[in-house]
Amino acid sequence: MAEERSKKQQPAKKRRTKSPPRQSTDEKPAAKRPKATAKTVNKKSQPKKKKRKQSAVSQKKRPVVAHQSKNPVYTVLFNVVFYGFILIMILGSIAFATTGNTDKSVLGYRFFGVLTDSMVPRDPEKQKGGFHSGDIIIVKNIAGDQAKVGDIITFRPSIKSQAFLTHRVKEKLDHLGDTKGTYYITQGDANLAEDVPINEKQVIGKKVTVIPKVGAFLSFIRENPVVSIIFLISVFGFITIIRYYILNK
Rank of each mutant, 00 (worst) to 15 (best):
S219W: 01
R122W: 00
P197I: 05
I152S: 06
I204S: 05
K172M: 06
K206S: 11
M119P: 06
G129T: 01
Q10Y: 12
I153P: 14
E27P: 01
V76Q: 07
S105L: 01
F96G: 09
V208F: 13
V214A: 15
P63E: 04
I153N: 09
L192M: 08
D178I: 03
K60Y: 04
K249D: 11
A30Y: 04
V203R: 04
L176H: 10
T182P: 06
Q146T: 15
S228I: 01
N71F: 03
A216T: 11
I138D: 00
S219K: 09
V64Q: 13
E200Q: 15
K18L: 13
G150S: 08
P72C: 00
Y245F: 14
M89G: 15
V139F: 01
G84F: 08
K160G: 10
L91D: 04
S161C: 09
T209K: 11
Y109T: 03
Q10K: 08
S6Q: 09
L218P: 07
A56W: 00
Q10D: 09
R156W: 05
R15L: 14
R168Y: 05
A193E: 15
A30I: 10
R110M: 14
L173I: 00
A147T: 03
K49P: 04
R168D: 05
V149C: 00
K160Y: 08
K206V: 15
F231K: 05
V41T: 13
V203P: 07
R5P: 00
I185W: 03
Q146M: 10
F231S: 12
A38Q: 11
S45R: 12
G113C: 02
T209F: 05
G188E: 08
F164T: 09
R110A: 07
S69T: 08
R33G: 03
T166H: 04
F131S: 07
K180M: 06
S234P: 03
V65E: 12
V196R: 02
F236Y: 14
V203T: 07
S69V: 02
N141T: 14
T240I: 07
L247K: 14
T37N: 14
A2R: 10
T182I: 11
G130R: 03
S55Q: 15
T102L: 04
H132A: 10
R122N: 15
G188D: 07
Q10S: 12
L165D: 12
I137G: 01
V235E: 02
D195S: 06
S6N: 13
G100I: 09
S55V: 04
A66K: 15
G237E: 07
K49A: 10
K32N: 09
E125Q: 13
R5V: 08
K8R: 08
K44Q: 12
L173T: 03
K249A: 08
E3A: 11
S118F: 07
F238S: 10
E194Q: 12
R52C: 01
E125G: 00
F238K: 06
D103E: 15
L77H: 05
F96N: 09
Y245P: 01
Q127L: 05
P21K: 06
L115E: 14
A163M: 13
M1F: 08
Y245C: 11
Q46K: 12
D103H: 11
N199S: 15
Y184P: 06
G144I: 05
G188P: 12
P47Y: 01
V208T: 13
D135Y: 00
A66F: 07
S118Y: 03
